[in-house]
Amino acid sequence: MNIEKAVLSVITTNKEKIDGGAPIFICDSKNEMDKIAANLEAILDGISHALSDDLYIIVKH
């Protein structure tokens, strides 16, 4: 099977909410989270989607 979409990375400020597989980046503030997400988006060639205010994921489409 060909997997077309994949979560490449998770960026969050809320450590309790997350666990597991993808690379996780824990940030101290919303501002830092935006910056890291913007960089990762460009580096990984994926789109950063907001699942909630304190949780972003980078998805390759």
């Binding site: 997400a37 913007a38 988006e41 950063s48 907001a50």
Partner: peptide
């Protein structure tokens, strides 16, 4: 609407970064 991009009432995609 939050992170969701809409045209009229049609949902287009989720864009997380405020800058984007």
């Amino acid at each position: 609407d939050g992170a969701g991009l809409y045209v009229d009432n049609i949902y287009i995609m989720n864009i997380g970064l405020p800058e984007r």
